[in-house]
Nucleic acid binder design. Structure first.
Length: 280
DNA sequence: CCAAGGCCTGAATG
DNA sequence: ACATTCAGGCCTT
């Protein structure tokens, strides 16, 4: 694939979107579903299985997107700081499980949990003279016992993971359908999976199902909105009920527009770096 | 519709 | 040392 615009590989990987990545010399290596990717500093991708998807969303129109979300000084500054930050289009099933695992957790633990899941259930493989474990497919996880999953350190989320894998492997919900559905339809459907609420759903929709209007509202984003947008969104800091959540998301969409998810990623990255939070 | 409490786990804090 | 607290939420009551 031709690279039209430069990519900030380092910061894109280190922005809370993906977890099974590590750097070795000049390359980043990561698990993306049933594939292993090797990415150089320019964003050039090689892979175990001839990966050809648009991982860094090169086909998005960045000029238009950045113009569209540049509504105020706050976002503009965030964009200025990380101008080549990308939203990553990752493997949907791995993404879904990753963000179920992420709830009420932290990045270090999420990473460790997911590594355990891959090692225990994923296929062992070699690429570029290194050993990797692919991410398990939905069928494998759907058949795993709750205790085996629990042993990966995910605690009460184990049963969510198994149930989610069952729903996907039985095709009660398919990613193809979610991709072609509208944002709000897709969200409704995906929220029927146990362990997936508003925040987790938006992460999955934004990072793997091309729903750029998804705007994950986690503790950090709420903090950011309180800090910079308190008046604009008339934030009711105490009550983040489902209803309030919907109302807030609507205001955000009205304000940032159809690429709100990109705005979220820039703001999130900026604020986490301000607080010097670790990524992987 | 809202508020409150519980939940696995491990690192950080007191 | 040991006990709380807290962390990219969600579910149940």
């Amino acid at each position: 694939m031709q690279i039209k615009q430069s990519i900030d590989v380092e910061n894109s990987i280190n922005s809370g979107q993906v977890f099974l990545w590590k750097k070795n010399r000049e390359y980043w290596y990561g698990i993306n579903g049933q594939d292993v990717l090797q990415i150089d500093e320019n964003g050039k991708i090689k892979s175990l299985k001839n990966f050809k998807a648009d991982f860094f969303r090169n086909n998005d129109n960045f000029d238009e997107i950045l113009r569209s979300i540049s509504k105020d000084k706050i976002v503009k500054n965030a964009i200025k700081k990380y101008p080549k930050l990308r939203i990553i289009r990752q493997d949907p099933f791995q993404c879904l499980i990753s963000f179920i695992v992420s709830s009420n957790s932290n990045i270090q633990k999420i990473k460790s949990n997911l590594e355990n899941i891959s090692e225990k259930f994923g296929e062992k493989t070699k690429y570029k003279n290194q050993e990797f474990f692919l991410f398990p497919n939905e069928e494998t996880l759907s058949k795993a016992s709750i205790n085996e999953i629990k042993n990966c350190g995910v605690g009460y989320r184990a049963k969510f993971i198994k149930e989610a894998a069952k729903i996907i492997s039985s095709e009660k919900i398919t990613f193809e359908d979610l991709k072609t559905s509208s944002y709000s339809d897709a969200k409704k459907k995906i929220c029927t999976i146990p362990g997936i609420g508003n925040k987790v759903a938006d992460c999955i929709l934004l990072f793997s199902l091309d729903k750029l209007e998804a705007f994950p509202l986690d503790r950090w984003m709420i903090r950011i909105l309180e800090k910079y947008y308190l008046k604009k969104f008339q934030l009711n800091t105490k009550t983040i009920t489902e209803k309030q959540h919907d109302i807030l998301h609507e205001k955000i969409l009205d304000y940032f527009g159809p690429y709100a998810g990109y705005a979220q990623q820039f703001l999130f990255k900026m604020e986490r770096e301000n607080y010097q939070k670790k990524w992987l």
